[in-house]
Nucleic acid binder design. Structure first.
Lengths: 231, 231
DNA sequence: CCGAGTTATGGTCGAGGTGACCCCAACTGC
DNA sequence: GCAGTTGGGGTCACCTCGACCATAACTCGG
């Protein structure tokens, strides 16, 4: 097996999700290559010889979304390596899933912007470059699934937060309406999910009782899990 | 971003699991490189320019374990890309998880053999090459987790099988003892998990009532899931 | 100031899943 | 025939869940 038959390039592509206006949004950028004009793509970077995969993903997030490491949750999603996924050259792409609160999600890179993920399935949706149309559904499904059995939902909100804000995350990511009382019972029943802090959040313009504030608890896994309805 | 800073080699490593003697076993091989003498490694291959990642994993499984595509379940696990994971060169490795029934697991490659995974944690355990000591626990945990909410356990048995054989898979992979009656109730309650076939399996030498035979059902996901005890 | 609307929080109740446990069926070996 | 073993079916207490109701605490219009 000679080296000539096994050299190829490795890239990272990051699917950055956030919740805006009660809806799940995804960061997309315009590719640099003029051949791909009119298409949108996930922010990505080639992996350099002297950096690990996670480092490259953090670099892509910093250069293309203006986010530093502590501002976003980042985890590896899956690797896509079909021979012809990039028509220009053989490139294996390690996809990452990133989550960030809305307040920190302010892309400054030209051509970058957040798109409602519901608009990706609708007719007239923007076309995605490479095989990113396959990566995006995988990333969304991973996020939806991990909300069930991990405390990942807190990565979408800033501390301190109310249970209504946390519930809004679940509703936006899953695309369902949840009963506030049952949601509260399940969150409080999951040991170490959230911890109460003093003070309350003022109600919105419509009124309502002030909500208590919480911060992230030490739990990584949720016991019992927060299962999606309609299984 | 010049090409010179982003070229590296891509490999696949396969963690092939099977159940032997009521215990979970892992296929390990002796690396070709004499520098790594005395260490064991997961079977792996460089990815060629003209093959996809899944194709390379299938090829590794065929060349190093003698298994063809329909004989084993194969799925991507995770990609490991630390800069110094291979001291000889920068190699990014896409790890795969493979499951196969015992009857089909007969490695003919010299230096290849199945090892009880419990022996990997015990003192005096064989050392693993590269970062395979990190890949193996990830593979085992993935298998343990997927038994909970998918029908993957049937990949460890040949059809037709009895519920005792299926229960033996869960007990070997999870390392726990399960109540036969409760196990049966949960399996039969998961729609489409297993389907009955005619006939019975003869009892073992100790006697006992003959067990009914089953084959795989159409279900991919289990509803409700088969949860591990002691959560 | 008052009452309607709104939101947060708390509680109840029945349906269904779970583990612990018991019993019977059907086989082997002595 | 009898003891031992394994498969298959059932019972029961406990827990979690969704659906639903009740109360608390605030805003807003009059």
């Amino acid at each position: 097996m000679s080296a000539a038959t096994s050299i190829c390039a490795v890239a990272v592509d990051v699917a950055l999700l956030t919740v805006r206006d009660q809806r799940l949004h995804l960061l997309l950028v315009e590719p640099d290559d003029p051949v791909l004009a009119g298409l949108l793509a996930l922010p990505g970077r080639r992996v350099r010889d002297d950096e690990g995969l996670d480092d490259a993903a953090h670099r892509a997030l910093g250069e293309l979304a203006g986010l530093q490491a502590p501002d976003a949750h980042l985890e590896q999603l899956r690797t896509y390596g079909e021979v012809s996924r990039d028509p220009r050259a053989r490139v294996v792409s390690v996809a990452y899933l990133a989550l960030t609160p809305t307040a920190r999600a302010a892309p400054t890179h030209p051509g970058a912007g957040f798109l409602d993920v519901a608009a990706l399935d609708a007719p007239g949706a923007p076309r995605l470059a490479y095989d990113h149309g396959r990566i995006v559904p995988d990333a969304i499904e991973r996020a939806r699934a991990k909300l069930e059995y991990t405390a990942l939902a807190t990565a979408f909100v800033t501390e301190p937060f109310t249970l209504a804000e946390l519930r809004g995350v679940y509703e936006a990511v899953w695309g369902v309406a949840l009963d506030p009382a049952n949601f509260r019972r399940k969150v409080m029943g999951a040991a170490g999910f959230v911890l109460p802090v003093s003070g309350t959040a003022p109600p919105g313009r419509g009124g309502g009782r002030p909500a208590r504030r919480y911060r992230r608890g030490p739990a990584q896994r949720l016991h019992p899990p927060m299962l999606r309805p309609e299984r």
